Simulated scan of single mutants.
Amino acid sequence: METACAQGWEARGLGLDCDQCRLHGFIPLHATSGSAVCPACFASALYQRENNKKAVEVVHRLNAFIDRAVDDGLLPHLLVAHRKNVVTRLAAVSKALDRAGFKIVAS
């Protein structure tokens, strides 16, 4: 999850339950405050809790691009393309080092 967050593929935040409009929302961590406010109706709301305990529950949400890719069945293709790009870059670096007289030893 750390890698996905660092690459912008998902966001951390707090879940929100509004008793007024029944919205089950998501507030990114950077936008949270001490008191929850529903983004739809602006009523006072509650952050979601872990198993009805006092601690709030940190939730994760995929960004819109990744979420749509999952819905369309494209995520495996994107991951393969990303992997292929990384392998291509490593091969280019290896070739350049070979030309310079260095050898890469796989471990």
Rank of each mutant, 00 (worst) to 15 (best):
P28D: 06
D67A: 15
I66Q: 01
Q20H: 14
D71Y: 05
L90R: 12
F102M: 05
N51M: 13
D67S: 15
S44A: 15
V93N: 06
F26T: 04
E57H: 11
L16F: 00
A92F: 09
P28L: 03
N85V: 10
A91W: 07
Q48I: 03
L97D: 05
V105C: 04
A69L: 06
C18Q: 00
C41F: 05
G8H: 10
L74G: 03
N51L: 12
R61N: 00
D67I: 02
L97G: 01
V70F: 04
I66Y: 04
I104T: 12
V105D: 10
G8I: 13
T88L: 11
K54E: 15
L75G: 04
F26H: 02
N51V: 12
M1A: 10
S35K: 13
L62D: 00
F102N: 10
A69N: 01
C5Y: 12
G25A: 09
V105R: 07
G15R: 01
L97E: 05
L29P: 01
Q20M: 11
A36D: 01
A45L: 00
K84S: 13
H30D: 15
R12T: 02
D71S: 15
A6G: 07
R61F: 01
A43Q: 08
L78W: 00
E2Y: 07
C41E: 01
A64K: 05
R68S: 10
S44K: 10
A4Q: 08
R68W: 07
A55C: 06
V86L: 14
D72Y: 02
V37S: 06
F65M: 09
H24E: 10
G15C: 02
H24N: 13
I104R: 13
H82W: 08
N63I: 06
D67C: 11
P39Q: 03
A31W: 07
A43W: 01
H77V: 14
E57N: 14
F102P: 06
L62Y: 03
R68E: 08
Q20N: 15
A6V: 07
E50H: 15
L14N: 05
R12S: 02
L62S: 04
Y47A: 01
A6S: 14
R99N: 11
G73H: 00
A96D: 14
L90S: 08
A6Q: 13
K53D: 14
A11G: 03
L16E: 01
D17Y: 05
V87F: 07
A4L: 12
V37I: 12
G25V: 01
D72M: 12
H60C: 09
L29S: 00
A106T: 14
S33V: 07
G101D: 07
L97C: 06
A69R: 01
R22L: 12
L46P: 00
P28Q: 09
K54Y: 13
C38F: 02
A4R: 03
C18I: 02
A4M: 10
L62M: 04
A91C: 13
A100W: 10
A40D: 11
L75Q: 09
C18D: 00
Q48N: 05
R61D: 04
T88S: 15
A6Y: 03
R89F: 12
I66W: 02
D72K: 11
S33D: 15
A96K: 13
